[in-house]
């Protein structure tokens, strides 16, 4: 027998919507509003700015709860339903509360062959959670990501939709987790192009400290 959801008198499910953020919290500051207006002016219609506004809202509130999407829609000047459709289409917009640091481990294609799953399992063991879960202290969430476009640096991961951490080893992961726990920011890592290494002896950018030399990727299943 199929179990039907319990319904109230008006035919809607009895599940009531409880907002997480209060009305006092749900505001954009004057600076943020000015930025949103600038973005809106970049497109023929204001609709184009919704993705930027959702990004801003996610950075501010941590994730896109329905009321945050509503706030973004109102700030952009488009219907809530349309903003909701956009927010739920893309994987980088978080619809549920995540940990303070979201670790997107690439396991696709090259990373799979070069030990992406080993890195994922190492993280799972180390943090005591499964992929898709958040640690009980709310610090870390682990996720599997699709190709992040850094196949030359496989295996790699991305921290909270921001920094790439490339050429991962267990030691590098340990150091990264410690740094994130201590509230330190990770450095931008620049991959040396192999031809640059040949022709100019290394990285060509003088404004980047962390430079990764090209090296053969590890072997899957034996990395640990």
């Amino acid at each position: 027998m199929i179990e039907l959801p319990t319904t109230s008198g008006d035919g809607h499910t009895s599940e009531t919507f409880v907002p997480v953020f209060s009305n006092e919290e749900l505001v954009f500051t004057t600076d943020e509003t000015a930025q949103i207006e600038r973005w809106k002016s970049h497109y023929p219609t204001v609709d184009g700015a919704i993705m930027r506004v959702l990004w801003l809202a996610q950075e501010k509130f941590g994730y896109l709860a329905p009321e945050v999407i509503r706030l973004s829609a109102e700030a952009t000047g488009i219907p809530y339903a349309k903003a909701y459709g956009v927010a739920t289409f893309y994987t980088q917009y978080f619809k549920k509360k995540k940990g303070k640091h979201v670790l997107d481990v690439c396991t696709c294609f090259t990373c799979q062959l070069c030990g992406g799953y080993d890195i994922l399992h190492y993280l799972e063991e180390k943090l005591g959670i499964k992929s898709g879960e958040t640690t009980s202290d709310g610090e870390f969430t682990i996720q599997q990501a699709e190709c992040l476009g850094a196949c030359d640096a496989a295996p790699m991961l991305q921290v909270t939709n921001g920094r790439y951490v490339m050429q991962l080893t267990p030691e590098k992961i340990d150091a990264m987790l410690d740094a994130l726990r201590d509230g330190k920011s990770l450095e931008f890592e620049s991959m040396t192009l192999p031809q640059d290494a040949d022709e100019m002896g290394g990285n060509r950018r003088s404004d980047t400290q962390a430079v990764l030399e090209t090296k053969a990727p590890p072997i899957a299943e034996t990395i640990l």
């Binding site: 219609t45 609709d47 184009g48 993705m51 930027r52 952009t76 349309k82 893309y90 994987t91």
Partner: peptide, 24 residues
């Protein structure tokens, strides 16, 4: 324009929908 993680946006007409603030 900053995307938000959807492979399909690399398809040109879907990229246009994404730019216009639609589902891609």
């Amino acid at each position: 324009h900053k995307g938000a993680g959807a492979y399909i946006c690399g398809e040109e007409s879907s990229l246009m929908n994404s730019l216009e603030g639609e589902r891609a």
